[in-house]
Simulated scan of single mutants.
Amino acid sequence: MQAFHSDAHSLALPPGHSFPASKYRLLRELFEAEPGLLRMAPAPAASEAELCLVHTPEYVNAVLQGRLSAAQQREIGFPWSPSMAARSLHSVGASIAAARAALAEGVAANMAGGTHHAFADRGSGYCVFNDVAVAARLMQQQWSAQAWPGDSRLRVLVIDLDVHQGNGTAAIFEGDDSVFTFSMHGAKNFPACKERSDLDVELPDGCSDEPYLQALDQALEEIWARHAAAGAMPGLAFYLAGADPHEGDRLGRLKLSSAGLLERDRRVLSALCERGIPVALSMAGGYGHDIATTVAVQANTLNEAVRAWAAWRLR
Rank of each mutant, 00 (worst) to 15 (best):
residue 1 M to A: 05
residue 2 Q to K: 13
residue 6 S to E: 05
residue 6 S to G: 05
residue 8 A to H: 10
residue 14 P to G: 11
residue 14 P to R: 15
residue 16 G to H: 12
residue 19 F to S: 12
residue 19 F to D: 05
residue 20 P to D: 11
residue 24 Y to R: 06
residue 26 L to Y: 03
residue 26 L to E: 08
residue 30 L to D: 08
residue 45 A to G: 13
residue 48 E to D: 13
residue 53 L to G: 06
residue 65 Q to N: 13
residue 66 G to F: 14
residue 68 L to E: 06
residue 76 I to G: 00
residue 80 W to Y: 08
residue 83 S to C: 09
residue 85 A to D: 03
residue 90 H to I: 07
residue 94 A to K: 01
residue 96 I to C: 07
residue 97 A to D: 03
residue 109 A to I: 05
residue 109 A to N: 06
residue 111 M to W: 01
residue 112 A to H: 08
residue 122 R to E: 01
residue 126 Y to P: 00
residue 127 C to A: 11
residue 127 C to V: 00
residue 128 V to H: 00
residue 128 V to D: 00
residue 130 N to R: 07
residue 136 A to R: 03
residue 144 S to K: 14
residue 147 A to F: 10
residue 148 W to D: 15
residue 156 V to F: 14
residue 157 L to R: 07
residue 159 I to A: 02
residue 160 D to C: 06
residue 165 Q to V: 08
residue 169 T to S: 11
residue 172 I to L: 14
residue 175 G to P: 12
residue 188 K to Y: 14
residue 190 F to Y: 15
residue 191 P to V: 07
residue 195 E to S: 13
residue 197 S to F: 01
residue 203 L to N: 01
residue 210 E to T: 09
residue 211 P to I: 02
residue 212 Y to T: 02
residue 213 L to F: 11
residue 219 A to P: 02
residue 219 A to Y: 00
residue 224 W to M: 13
residue 225 A to I: 09
residue 227 H to M: 15
residue 233 M to S: 13
residue 234 P to T: 05
residue 235 G to A: 11
residue 238 F to S: 00
residue 239 Y to F: 07
residue 240 L to S: 04
residue 244 D to W: 02
residue 250 R to L: 14
residue 255 K to N: 12
residue 255 K to Q: 14
residue 259 A to L: 10
residue 260 G to K: 06
residue 262 L to A: 07
residue 265 D to Q: 04
residue 266 R to W: 03
residue 267 R to K: 14
residue 278 P to E: 06
residue 286 G to P: 02
residue 290 D to F: 12
residue 291 I to H: 01
residue 293 T to W: 12
residue 294 T to E: 08
residue 295 V to Q: 01
residue 295 V to K: 00
residue 297 V to G: 02
residue 298 Q to M: 14
residue 300 N to S: 12
residue 302 L to I: 13
residue 305 A to I: 09
residue 307 R to W: 09
residue 308 A to I: 10
residue 310 A to N: 09
residue 313 R to F: 08
residue 315 R to D: 15
